[in-house]
Amino acid sequence: MNSVRNEILRIKNYDISIGELQMMLRDGDFDLVPSFKEGLKWNIREKSKYVESALLQLPLNNILFEEDNVGKFIIVDGADRISALIDYMADTYELSNLPILSKLEGKAYSDLEYSDQLRLKRTVLSCDIISNDSNQLLKCEYLKRINLSNPSFLPQQARNFAFPKSHSLIKNEMENLIHHFNYSIIERSHGSRRHISINRAEQFFLCMILIQVIYYNGYIFNNTYLGNALDQLCYEIENKKVDVDVSFLFDNIQKVMDYLGFDSINLVYRSFSSMSKYKKNEISMNDFLCLFYEVSHGLKVNTLKFNFFNEDIRMSKLSWYI
């Protein structure tokens, strides 16, 4: 990651009350669900426990924002936490499944005693604000590292945050792909959370662009891991150092479909050891990417053993097959 040498991540810290954040949201001074995030995920029980934590005045985790070029705050990490408090103060739900403050069970914000309402409104959150002009690769790496223990977080979400132009291009070209080919991504194999499915689909498309770059440039990021190679690729797309060759992608997608004998294709996340275990016209994203790599490079098919969704795999492993 040569682009981060002698760089720092510029972060300021502010203590902001929930009442102040409520006013900022009302005035449009911060974005609760920016385009790189795929919606809020907490249910009523999770929201209620967070409100209970605030009422008990327990320490609350830092909220992470980025400040854009006009001073608006964009939430990067902590949207569900802020939403839990702000939504409750707007009387959109009632507290439930409280393990400690059971006397507040079933109460909306307007049902609370005035002292409890004030306690919530004056709850202070420690907010880290990333400067907009910080290095993009460092922003990406920072978001990945603070989510190491978050099972629902995918690294592609960090790339979508740090490289918004790259993210927009990927989304647009994915739409073109859907219109050009009769293909779909089966969400049942991704669990119930739709945002995970969307992030995996975006990584799938990004990996095809990575294969295009390897084909044209003849290098495989030998001294790095797949995750860092994808970060670097997004950085280069963001800064217009790499162009997406749509004809290369479409031609080789068609070659894979011809090899499989599919008129339409359903992509799933889970891989099977045998094609016979897939349903009709179904194949895993990773198996498809391996075939895509093989047909684009003129290699013998069904020989590549590489996991394009393992961010910690060495890119040098691909050179074994060339």
Rank of each mutant, 00 (worst) to 15 (best):
F65K: 01
G78L: 02
M89K: 04
K144N: 05
N281I: 00
F36R: 05
R45K: 12
V4K: 14
L32V: 03
P151N: 10
M174H: 11
Y142W: 02
L104Q: 11
S96F: 03
H179N: 09
M275H: 12
V76H: 06
K277L: 10
F221C: 00
I16P: 04
I253Q: 14
L138N: 06
N302V: 09
I198E: 15
F288P: 02
A108K: 14
R194Y: 11
N160L: 03
Y278T: 01
P151G: 10
Y50F: 13
K317I: 06
L60A: 08
A84Q: 09
Q157R: 14
S166E: 09
S168Q: 14
T224W: 07
D15P: 06
M208F: 14
Y142F: 10
K41V: 14
S276L: 15
D29G: 05
D231R: 11
E66S: 11
N266A: 15
E7W: 06
K37P: 02
L148D: 06
E238L: 02
V256C: 02
I185A: 11
L206N: 11
A201D: 07
Y88T: 00
E94Q: 08
F262K: 10
D87I: 04
Y93D: 11
K49M: 00
L55E: 01
G191F: 13
V244A: 11
D287K: 05
D116W: 04
F250V: 11
N172M: 09
L58I: 11
P155A: 03
L289M: 01
R200E: 15
P34L: 05
L143C: 05
T224R: 07
N147T: 11
K41Q: 07
F36N: 02
N135A: 01
S168I: 08
K121E: 13
N222A: 14
S126R: 15
S273A: 13
R122K: 00
Y114N: 10
D80P: 05
N160H: 14
N266V: 12
H167M: 03
Q57P: 02
N97T: 13
Y183S: 13
D116P: 04
R200G: 13
L101D: 11
L32F: 02
F36Y: 14
E38M: 02
F262D: 13
Y269M: 04
L25H: 04
A158Q: 12
V244D: 03
G261V: 00
E175T: 10
Y215I: 06
P155D: 07
L233N: 00
I75T: 04
H167T: 06
E141A: 10
S189V: 08
E294T: 07
E94C: 09
P164W: 08
W320G: 04
W320D: 07
I82D: 00
E7C: 10
D111T: 03
E66I: 05
G191R: 09
F30N: 06
T303Q: 10
L138Q: 08
L138C: 11
M174E: 15
V70S: 05
R159Y: 03
S48E: 03
G261F: 02
E46Q: 06
E113Y: 09
C140Y: 11
D128P: 03
L230S: 00
S284W: 02
K279W: 10
L206P: 08
W42K: 07
S53G: 05
M257R: 12
S48V: 09
L32E: 04
K12M: 08
M208T: 14
K165V: 08
I75A: 08
N160Q: 12
I186V: 14
I8G: 09
S102A: 09
L154H: 01
F161A: 13
